[in-house]
Amino acid sequence: METITTKTLELEFNLTNGDRYTLSLPDYLADLTQEQIETAAAIIVAKKLFVPDGVNLDSLFGFQYVDKIVRKTEV
C-alpha cells in the first residue's frame, strides 16, 4: 500500500466582476500565521500577479488549509 500526503493552502479571492477565484499553493509552511497569509494576499492583489480571464483580483475572501492523505492499493 502506498500512502501519499499532500498539503495545500487555498486562497479564495473576490474578483472585481463579483466572482471568486481560488489560488492553490502546494506544500505550505506549517507555521504560517493568518497575518502572513493576509499580507501575502494583499501583495498579490496590489501587484496584480494573477488576472484570471482578464479580471483583476479585488480582495482576499478567505483561505483554508487542505491536508489530504491517500492510501492507494493495487490489486
Score class of each variant (00 low, 15 high):
residue 30 A to K: 13
residue 21 Y to A: 06
residue 21 Y to G: 02
residue 4 I to W: 01
residue 19 D to G: 11
residue 13 F to E: 02
residue 42 A to R: 10
residue 7 K to P: 03
residue 15 L to S: 05
residue 9 L to R: 08
residue 7 K to E: 05
residue 41 A to F: 04
residue 1 M to F: 10
residue 8 T to R: 14
residue 8 T to N: 13
residue 5 T to Q: 14
residue 45 V to Q: 00
residue 16 T to R: 06
residue 24 S to E: 15
residue 40 A to K: 12
residue 33 T to E: 01
residue 9 L to S: 05
residue 22 T to V: 15
residue 17 N to D: 15
residue 4 I to Y: 09
residue 28 Y to G: 07
residue 6 T to L: 13
residue 34 Q to P: 01
residue 4 I to P: 01
residue 44 I to W: 08
residue 10 E to T: 13
residue 7 K to T: 07
residue 46 A to Q: 15
residue 11 L to H: 03
residue 34 Q to M: 04
residue 29 L to W: 06
residue 9 L to I: 07
residue 27 D to P: 00
residue 26 P to T: 09
residue 31 D to S: 12
residue 21 Y to T: 01
residue 5 T to I: 14
residue 10 E to L: 13
residue 25 L to T: 02
residue 9 L to M: 11
residue 44 I to E: 06
residue 32 L to Q: 06
residue 15 L to N: 09
residue 39 T to Q: 06
residue 11 L to G: 03
residue 23 L to R: 04
residue 27 D to Y: 04
residue 29 L to C: 00
residue 36 Q to P: 02
residue 28 Y to Q: 09
residue 32 L to A: 03
residue 12 E to K: 05
residue 33 T to S: 15
residue 11 L to K: 01
residue 1 M to K: 12
residue 30 A to P: 03
residue 41 A to I: 06
residue 42 A to P: 01
residue 37 I to D: 00
residue 11 L to N: 01
residue 33 T to D: 02
residue 17 N to Q: 09
residue 10 E to R: 14
residue 17 N to K: 03
residue 29 L to H: 11
residue 38 E to N: 12
residue 26 P to Q: 11
residue 2 E to R: 10
residue 11 L to E: 05
residue 23 L to V: 05
residue 35 E to F: 00
residue 32 L to P: 04
residue 29 L to E: 12
residue 39 T to C: 00
residue 39 T to P: 01
residue 44 I to Q: 04
residue 38 E to F: 04
residue 29 L to N: 10
residue 36 Q to D: 03
residue 34 Q to E: 14
residue 5 T to R: 15
residue 44 I to C: 08
residue 2 E to P: 05
residue 23 L to H: 07
residue 24 S to Y: 00
residue 19 D to T: 07
residue 5 T to G: 06
residue 40 A to H: 09
residue 42 A to S: 14
residue 31 D to Y: 07
residue 31 D to K: 12
residue 5 T to H: 14
residue 38 E to Y: 02
residue 20 R to C: 04
residue 38 E to V: 02
residue 41 A to E: 00
residue 38 E to P: 02
residue 7 K to D: 06
residue 33 T to Y: 07
residue 46 A to M: 11
residue 25 L to G: 03
residue 35 E to C: 00
residue 45 V to G: 04
residue 42 A to K: 12
residue 20 R to S: 10
residue 46 A to K: 15
residue 37 I to L: 04
residue 45 V to D: 06
